[in-house]
Write a protein that binds this DNA or RNA. Structure first.
Lengths: 117, 117
DNA sequence: CGCATTGGGTTGTATATACAACTAACAATG
DNA sequence: CATTGTTAGTTGTATATACAACCCAATGCG
C-alpha cells in the first residue's frame, strides 16, 4: 500500500520537481514556519538524519532556507510552490481514497486476507 | 503514514532478520511458488529493478533460490521463517489498525485536515 | 571552575525504491 | 533465413529512510 500511494503522489507531483517527502516538509513549514530540525523531524515522523538530508535538497532547490540556523524557514518560492501544488495534491489524495474505498472499507483487511489466505 | 506503519513492521520483524519488503515477497512465494520476476513484481507492485535487488538479498540469506531460473522459488528455510513470523506480523497489523482506527475511521482525512488547515 | 552529561545536528552505512538505459534472448515477419 | 521488434532481466543513478556512531555546544553539578 505504501508503494501504491507513493506512486500516485509521484505521478501528480513530478511536474513540480518536488518529491513526496519534500512536499510534506514544505506543508509543515508553510503552516508553522521557523522550526528546528528536531521539531520538524517529530512532526513529520522522520528520523533526524533523514530529515537532515531532505533539507539539503530543499535548500539546494531554494524552497527552504537555513539562514536563521538552527531554525528552518520556508522561502517565498517554497510558499508559492505549495500553493501551486495543492490542487494536484488533492487529486492524488482523491485517487488514493477511491482506491482504498473501492476495495472495501479498510483495505488493510483485504490485503491481510489476500496475503495470508 | 507510510513511515509510521513501516516503523511498526520493522519493530516486530527485526528480530527475524527480514525487512518489510522481503517478507512481502516471501509471503507471496509461500502462497504461490515458482514465479518469474515479472510476475512477482506485478503481484508485489514493485518495480522490476527493485525486485531484482530484493531478491539478491533474499538469495544471500538462503530464503529464496534461483536454481530454477528464471523461476524464483522459496526455500524450506524461507517457508519456516514465514511460519515463525506470522504471529508477530499479525501483532504489527493489529497495532497499525488500532492506530488508524484510533484517529478516526479514515485516518487519511485527519491527516489531510491537519496538513492543509 | 572544570568535568560530565545531554541533546541537537552531522556523517557513515545498509536497505528500499523508481526511472532510464542497456542487454540478451526469443519471436514474428518480409 | 535474416532482420527487426518485443520483453525479461540487469545495471546506473538519484532519492528516501533508518540506525548507529560521532561531534560540538550548552548546561549542570561537584
Amino acid at each position: 500500500m505504501s508503494r501504491v500511494t507513493a506512486n500516485i503522489f509521484r505521478k501528480y507531483l513530478s511536474p513540480f520537481g518536488v518529491t513526496n517527502s519534500q512536499l510534506t516538509l514544505l506543508f509543515i513549514l508553510a503552516k508553522r514556519d521557523g522550526l528546528s530540525q528536531k521539531q520538524l523531524s517529530e512532526i513529520a515522523v522522520l528520523e533526524k538524519s533523514s530529515l537532515h538530508r531532505n533539507l539539503i535538497r530543499l535548500v539546494d532547490a531554494g524552497l527552504v532556507a537555513k539562514e536563521a540556523f538552527p531554525l528552518i524557514k520556508i522561502t517565498d518560492e517554497g510558499k508559492s510552490l505549495v500553493n501551486e501544488v495543492i490542487p494536484e495534491w488533492r487529486k492524488a489524495m482523491d485517487e488514493i481514497k477511491s482506491k482504498l474505498e473501492g476495495e472495501g472499507l479498510l483495505a488493510l483487511d483485504t490485503l491481510t486476507d489476500k496475503l495470508l489466505s
